[in-house]
Simulated scan of single mutants.
Amino acid sequence: MVENKPLLTIQDLSVVYDNGKGIFDFTLRFSKGHFVALVGSNGAGKSTLMNTISGIQQPTRGTVEFNDHYINAQNPYNVLGFSPQSQVIDWYLSVLDNVLLGPLLAGTPSRQAKNLALSALELVGLKDKIHFSVDQLSGGQQQRVQIARAVAHNPSFYLLDEPTTGLDAESAEAFLQYLKKKTEEKECAVLISSHDLDLLENYCHDLIYMDDGRVVYNGPISKFLASNVSFQRYEIEYKGELSEQVLVELEKIALAVHQYNPLVIDIKTDKSVAAIISIVEKSASLVNIKSERLSLREKYLNMKGRG
């Protein structure tokens, strides 16, 4: 069936700048239901990838193709909702008119476009400011206007470059919850980048990890978190007190000691936790021990050599 075919296919894509930097040899596929986090250091190529998907940046080689089934021939951009990293706002228009441009440019009839714009403004918490000029808004509110314009026409593919920058925690959570619901109902696919890795981990299903213009990992976040970990974190509950000598011994064997009661400690994966237990039991009685899963942020920093 057509619905099982990818919504977007990227094949052997490279974008090479004059200085030799860019992105290289990307082959990716996105289908409805995919909620994908795009992570990497500044300069890794995330914005280049997104700008190329949107059509702003031309590839040096390779292709970016949307499945024709999802594209309206009269309004081809209806399929895409793009919020770039740089702010794109029409400063001479009201909040409502800024958002209204999204569905209008996507070919939506005027009356329906207004209803969609109002719904999008309600989603981002700005429905009470529809007649404000955008320069009357805070930076975070202006970011919400841009998000609302990108999503108002209910696109099939959301391309969101740092959309939560400047948003308060409540607004960011509400927006990602909205996207998660739409992907779970297979209404769309989402590719989103953000430096808030904890937020991405809570909502995204899959991960593309970029480094130096190349894909290092592409797959489920759960498998990324389980792979290539150089250390394991344990939480150890005990009765009694840890003596000064025990604390010294623990700090010698551990990569890091995060807290002491309960004891939360990182050790290399090639080390036995039994050594930690034997040290603890020199001055306290063991109650319970459990391993803790590393967060996406911790795993990412570990891979970058800063964990």
Rank of each mutant, 00 (worst) to 15 (best):
N228G: 12
L200F: 07
S230D: 11
S194M: 02
Y217S: 04
N202T: 13
H205Q: 14
E201A: 14
G219I: 07
C204M: 05
F231C: 02
Y203L: 02
Q232E: 13
H205S: 14
N202D: 12
V229G: 14
G219T: 08
S230Y: 13
P220R: 12
N218Y: 12
P220N: 13
F224Y: 14
S193G: 05
V229Q: 15
D206R: 04
F224D: 10
V215Y: 00
V215K: 05
L200C: 02
V216Y: 09
V216W: 10
D212L: 08
Y209C: 06
C204Q: 00
I208L: 09
D212P: 12
L207V: 09
V216Q: 15
A226S: 15
H205D: 15
G213F: 00
Y209T: 09
V215R: 00
R233D: 07
D198W: 06
G213I: 01
S230F: 08
S193I: 08
V216D: 11
F231N: 02
N218K: 00
S227K: 13
I208C: 05
D212T: 07
L199I: 10
Q232T: 13
D196P: 15
D198M: 13
N218F: 02
R233T: 14
K223H: 13
R214W: 05
V229R: 15
H195M: 03
D198H: 06
V216H: 10
I221H: 10
E201F: 05
D212W: 12
L197M: 12
R233W: 05
D196C: 03
S193Y: 02
S222W: 05
Q232G: 02
S222T: 12
D198P: 03
I208E: 02
D206K: 04
Y234W: 14
L225G: 13
L200M: 14
L207W: 11
F224A: 09
I221M: 13
R233P: 02
S194G: 06
S222V: 04
N218D: 15
A226M: 08
V215L: 06
D212H: 15
Y203W: 06
Q232R: 14
S222E: 15
F224K: 06
R214S: 14
V229I: 14
L199V: 04
K223A: 08
V216R: 11
A226W: 04
L207Q: 08
R214M: 11
L197T: 04
D211A: 11
C204N: 00
S227H: 10
N218W: 01
Y209S: 07
Y203F: 14
L200A: 09
H195E: 10
H205G: 09
R233I: 07
N218L: 00
R214G: 10
L199W: 04
F231K: 05
D198T: 11
I221N: 12
S222A: 15
Y234V: 01
S194N: 05
I208A: 04
G213E: 00
R233N: 07
D206L: 07
F224V: 10
F224T: 06
L225Q: 12
S193R: 04
Y217Q: 10
M210T: 01
R214Y: 12
L199A: 07
L225F: 11
H195V: 04
A226G: 08
D206P: 05
D196H: 13
H205T: 14
D196F: 02
G213T: 00
L207Y: 09
V216A: 10
L200K: 02
D212G: 07
R214K: 13
